[in-house]
Structures are given as C-alpha cells and as structure tokens.
Design a protein around this nucleic acid. Structure first.
Length: 259
DNA sequence: ATGGCCAATTTTATTGGA
C-alpha cells in the first residue's frame, strides 16, 4: 500500500497536474492526503477523482487551508477538525479509518514570524494536535501525513546558517513537532534515509527548485506497528519540476507499506 | 531549466504562503 501526501496550493489550480502525476505513476497511489485545497467542501472536484477510482473525504475552506483524504477504498469512519472552537475555523485536520489504519491529513499553520499572533497560533495548534492524538484510541496503527511547516533538523534545510532562526527552523517549532514524534511517531523518510538531504518544498522565487534551495517540511509519520512494514519512502520531484502547468511550491512524499 | 513567485479575493491592490 502506497500513501502520498501533497500540499497542492489550491486544488483548482493544481487539478490538471495532479491527475497527470497520478496517471504517470500508473495508479500506484492507494491513499492521497491533500493540503491547502483553498475550496469549500461543495467546490471540491470529487468527480475528477472518482474517475481515477478515488473516494474523497474533504474538510474544505474558501480561499485558505482545507485538507482531504482520497482513497481507493471507502473509509470506515471520518473525523474532521479538533473539536476545539478556537482552532476549528481553520480547516487543517482530517482523519479517516481506511482498512483498519487511521490516516491523518494535516496542514500546520505557517507561523509568519516569532512573536507574532500567527506564531503563537502555530504553537497552540501543535498543542491541540498532541491533545487530540492523546485522546484517540491507541489500538489502531496510525499515519500522520501532511505539511507540518517545520524542518526538523539542519539536514532538512539547504542552508542552516542562512536560515537560522527563520520560520520553519526555530527551536520552538522544532520542539513542538518533536513532541509529536515523542508520542510514538517515526519520521518515515529519516528512518530509512538517516543522512540523505531530501526536500519537499522550494520557494517560487529565484529559481529555488533548480538550485535545490529547499526545505523538508512535509512528512509521513507512522506509529510503531507500521514502521515494521515500512518498505520505502520517496520524495517525487516530478510535479515540482514542471514549468507548465505551474506547479505547487511543494512536491509529494510517498511511503510504501507491506500491507 | 536558466531573469523576474503564486493564488484567492478584498481584483488593477492586498493578503497569505514559507
């Protein structure tokens, strides 16, 4: 079973490229976790995914945020949002039970800059994520996939000196994500590739992707039972390295499990 | 692959992204 996570930066703008990519891969993606849809539930292009054999469950929002899980088998149940009034105005979390595996598609807040209201919101969001996870049943194997907007370590940024203390690399953010990992989640890419640089995001500006000036901020985190059957983790740069149609600034991360 | 962001809305500017 292959799981992919992809921050599409608008599903409307990315639909053509996304379908092209799924077809180019020969239909090997079983579950697709999407972020930054920027559309309401009603405006999500369900039909396009149905044609490719996917059932999509969506927590959407106009203009900002929005997450979805698209899978070839229907989920047994779905949860949308934290159930925390302060945070649920922004659609950044969806969970689905697919074949007895609990899958999350999450989109962590960007955070703007240290000390800003958005930065504090980001830290509160991570607290809420941990609170939510701690209340879920631990009986089922769990996958946490999405855009976490944090580069965990210096190996996860192209220039740790230039990017020191900038958004995505600050110690508060890294600690927030590391606390999630300490709940029993493993960074699948780093687990299989301890020394490899592999970015999932490059700025639109300055031809960053051609210079490989990026960051690894998109992750597939898995609970211990799933690590045992983790076969491979791949960052597929193909969608990001298109000139036309215009790509997202992120690229998909794909993990394969022997399930 | 080779100059220079992209997307949505508030639309001919502004806001958010990272």
């Amino acid at each position: 079973m292959k799981i992919a996570t992809y921050n599409v930066n608008s599903i409307k703008s990315r639909l053509g490229l996304l379908i092209q990519w799924l077809e180019k891969r020969g239909g090997d993606i079983d579950v697709l976790c999407l972020q930054e849809l920027k559309v309401t539930d009603e405006a999500f292009p369900y039909g396009e995914f149905e044609r490719l054999g996917y059932n999509c469950t969506v927590s959407g929002q106009r203009a900002y945020n929005g997450v979805a899980i698209c899978s070839k088998t229907r989920p047994q149940w779905v949860i949308k949002n934290f159930g925390v009034a302060e945070l649920d105005g922004q659609k950044r979390l969806i969970a689905a039970n697919i074949n007895g595996i609990v899958l999350y598609s999450v989109y962590a807040p960007h955070g703007d800059e240290r000390g800003s209201e958005k930065f504090n919101y980001k830290l509160r969001w991570y607290e809420a994520l941990r609170g939510f996870l701690s209340q879920q049943s631990q009986d089922l194997p769990t996958l946490l996939a999405g855009d976490f907007n944090v580069a965990l370590n210096d190996l996860d940024v192209y220039d740790p000196v230039a990017l020191e203390d900038t958004i995505g690399t600050m110690k508060e953010e890294r600690e927030a994500l590391k606390k999630v990992l300490q709940m029993g989640f493993i960074d699948s890419f780093r687990h299989l590739h301890p020394e490899q640089r592999g970015f999932s995001w490059w700025a639109y500006t300055g031809g960053a992707v051609w210079k490989d000036q990026g960051m690894r901020i998109d992750y597939i985190l898995c609970s211990a039972p799933l690590v045992k059957c983790l076969k491979s983790v791949e960052i597929d740069q193909w969608p990001r390295r298109r000139r036309t149609p215009i790509p997202s600034d992120h690229t998909p991360v794909i993990a394969e499990f022997a399930i």
